[in-house]
């Protein structure tokens, strides 16, 4: 029986650190096996070869920050049957979305050596603000085993198994003692999407929100708790303005505490 054609997979980069696509190359034990099941048709970080679209699956890393990229993402969507965004930049605008909170007038007095060489948008935005996205994989960076799971789910035509509950649940499952309750450390675990395996609390520090907001986030409640622990508004703003600052629940919560908005 003839083997069915392998799905054509493309990897695309926008404003980002390269770390999420690197996760694919960091699958040292799985990479060669994965490459047996898919045809890597466009992955410039790893290969000179460029196979023309259309593609069965596009993995998109990075946020939209330039007029050129805002156009490019539409072309990619048109040539992709399925499109999955990987990482906090692509799903929430990334750390570079901190610019989104600055007063426009402050940017008027930006001093470059030669500012006219630069073409940049005022905001860093997630891919889903521009096109329809079929699935969003969270994390700064993504978890590589979740990436393998997403690719494998795609090949097999099923829904990826990437739980949307909070990081708190992951701590409980691991049996990690709560760093906020027992050690008085600020922790974003109660509002943060699972995926990392609650890494930070196992390393004696509070979660800092790499995976962005969980489903049905109660950010206000966390802010009240942080206040009880002695945090001022500035600290609360900084806490929510990290690698997923522009994700709606975090954005709204930080704006409530940001004096510049009042």
């Amino acid at each position: 029986m003839a083997r069915k054609l392998k799905p054509k997979v493309a990897v695309w980069k926008f404003a980002s650190c390269d770390g999420c696509q690197l996760s694919l190359l960091d699958c040292e034990d799985e990479l060669l096996a994965v490459s047996q099941e898919i045809e890597i048709a466009h992955f410039p970080e790893a290969s000179r070869e460029v196979i023309k679209g259309p593609y069965d699956l596009s993995l998109v890393e990075g946020s939209i920050t330039t007029p050129h990229d805002a156009e490019r993402i539409h072309k990619i969507r048109r040539s992709s049957k399925s499109l999955i965004t990987i990482g906090a930049c692509a799903t929430a605008g990334g750390i570079q979305a901190l610019r989104n909170f600055k007063d426009v007038n402050e940017f008027v007095s930006i001093v470059y050596a030669t500012p006219e060489y630069i073409d940049t948008l005022q905001k860093s935005t997630p891919i889903s603000e521009h096109i329809k996205v079929d699935f969003e994989l969270r994390g700064c960076p993504i978890d590589k085993m979740q990436l393998v799971e997403v690719i494998s789910a795609f090949i097999n035509g099923r829904k990826p198994n990437t739980p949307a509950h909070s990081t708190c649940i992951e701590c409980k499952r691991r049996g990690t003692v709560c760093v906020m309750v027992a050690q008085g450390k600020m922790c974003m675990g109660p509002v943060t999407h699972a995926g990392c395996g609650a890494l930070c609390p196992t390393y004696n520090r509070g979660c800092y929100g790499c995976f962005g907001p969980q489903e049905t986030t109660n950010a206000g409640s966390l802010s009240s708790q942080l206040k009880r622990m002695g945090a001022d508004d500035e600290e609360i703003v900084r806490t929510f303005r990290g690698f997923n600052a522009y994700a709606e629940p975090f954005r709204k919560e930080s704006e409530l505490h940001d004096k510049e908005n009042h």
Partner: peptide, 27 residues
């Protein structure tokens, strides 16, 4: 595309620099 790290570090706490600047490069 530029991401303006030197700009966005302003106003952040000194303890945050290692986590924020790590995001300059995933490699």
């Amino acid at each position: 595309p530029p991401r303006f790290f030197e700009g966005l570090l302003r106003g952040r706490d000194f303890k945050e620099a290692p986590d924020i600047t790590a995001r300059i490069c995933g490699i």
